[in-house]
Design a binder for these strands. Structure first.
Lengths: 205, 205
DNA sequence: GTCTATACGCAGATAGAC
DNA sequence: GTCTATCTGCGTATAGAC
C-alpha cells in the first residue's frame, strides 16, 4: 500500500509511529511527523488535538501488537514445545517488522509506569497467560521440572535483546568482519529453540 | 560520599547522569539537572559550555564503565567457565547499580550511530575481546563446540534484558503476586550460570 | 565561582482563509 | 479537510552583578 492510498489519518499514524519509536515522546517533533506524513503540522492537531493524544494512539497500537504475540500459546492442538517454537517464530517476525517497538515500550513505561498499569490490564485479560500453562505441563510431567517465570524471562531475553541491542552489536561486529543482522537471522533463533528443547526435555532434575 | 562533599563539577555530572539516563539527550532538561545538583542553571554552562558537551561527558563515562565489565575475561588464572561466571557476577552488580545504563547507551547509539563509532573503537582496543578467547578454548577442546558469537549474545541477552525490561516485568508480575526484583536477584543469575555450564560441558555435539 | 535577569529560538498549539 | 500565518510558552544559552 503506497502512501498515496492511505487516508490522512493513517498517514499520520504511520509517520507518528516511526518518529515516536525513534525519538520517544519528548524527543519526537511534530514537524518531523508532519513532514514524514507529507502534510502540514496543523493537520496533526486537527486529527489528534495535541501531541499527547497522538502519542497515546501510537502507544496503544504498539502495546496491542506486542501482546498479540502470546496468543499462540493458547492453541492446545500443539504440544507445549511446538507452541513455544511457534511463539519464537512469531516474536522474531514481529521484531523484524518493528525492531524499535520493545525499546519504545520499555522506555516510555520506565518514564511513566502509570502508562502500563492503565493500558495493559484489560489487554492481558483476554490472553492466555503463559506461566500457569507451563506450570500445568510441569505438573502433568509433560515437560521437565523448572521455574516457569525464570524460563519465560530467559526465553524472552534471548529473543528481544538481539533486536534491542542491535545498534550496539552492529557497531561491535562490523569492525570484526561480521554482519550482525545476518547472524541474528540465521543463528540466534535456532539457539533459542535449542535452549527450549534443553529446558523442556532434560532428565537430570 | 554525601552531596555536600562533592565538587560542583562532580555534583553536576552525577545529576546529569541520572537525568540523561532517564530522559535521554532530547528529553532531559537542564533545569532538572541543575535542581538535582542543587545549583543554578547558569553554572551548568559555566562548567560544560552547553548541553551537548555535558551529555558527551556523561556518555563517555557510561561507555567506559560498560566496557570495563569485560576485562575479567582476560584473567587467565581462571578456567573459562570460572571467568564467565565471574563476568556474570560483575554484569549483575553493574546493572544493579546502573539499571538504566544499557538502555541509555542503546537508545543514544540507535539515534546517532556515529556516537558509537567515534567512542568505542579506542576503548575496545585495550580490552580482551571475548570471541577469540572462546574460539581458542574450543580449539583446545577445553569447552564444547559452539558458535562463540551466538553464545555471547545469548549470554548477554539473559543478563541485560531482565534489567532493561524491568519496568515491563514489574508491571506484569505485580498483578500476579510476584516481586520482579526479588526473582531477578535470586533466580535469574543462577539460570544464566546453568546455561553457561550447559553450553560449555555438553557432550552431544 | 555562583547568582539573577534576560535574550533568543524552537516547538506545540491556534486562528482563520480557502 | 487542508493550508499559511501567528501566538505563546518553554528551554537553552548569555550578560553581567556580586
Amino acid at each position: 500500500m503506497g502512501l498515496k492510498d492511505q487516508s490522512t489519518e493513517a498517514k499520520i499514524l504511520n509517520a507518528a509511529k516511526e518518529v515516536f519509536m525513534k525519538f520517544g515522546l519528548y524527543g519526537a517533533r511534530m514537524q518531523d511527523i508532519a513532514d514524514l506524513a507529507g502534510i502540514n503540522k496543523a493537520l496533526l492537531h486537527y486529527y489528534f488535538r495535541n501531541k499527547e493524544k497522538l502519542f497515546n494512539a501510537v502507544f496503544e497500537s504498539a502495546l496491542e501488537k506486542y501482546f498479540q504475540q502470546v496468543t499462540v500459546m493458547g492453541d492446545t492442538s500443539m504440544s507445549v514445545e511446538e507452541r513455544l517454537f511457534k511463539y519464537v517464530d512469531n516474536v522474531f517476525d514481529f521484531f523484524e517488522e518493528y525492531p524499535q517497538m520493545t525499546m519504545f515500550i520499555i522506555k516510555e513505561v520506565s518514564i511513566n509506569p502509570e502508562l502500563f498499569k492503565q493500558k495493559v490490564s484489560k489487554l492481558k485479560e483476554n490472553k492466555p497467560f503463559v506461566v500457569p500453562m507451563l506450570q500445568q505441563a510441569i505438573d502433568n510431567k509433560e515437560i521437565a521440572e523448572m521455574d516457569p517465570i525464570v524460563f519465560i524471562v530467559n526465553l524472552h531475553s534471548m529473543c528481544a535483546y538481539p533486536f534491542l541491542g542491535a545498534p550496539l552489536f552492529r557497531g561491535m561486529m562490523k569492525n570484526n568482519g561480521y554482519d550482525w543482522d545476518q547472524v541474528k537471522k540465521e543463528k540466534i533463533k535456532d539457539a533459542v529453540k535449542e535452549f527450549i528443547s534443553f529446558k523442556l526435555n532434560r532428565k537430570d532434575v
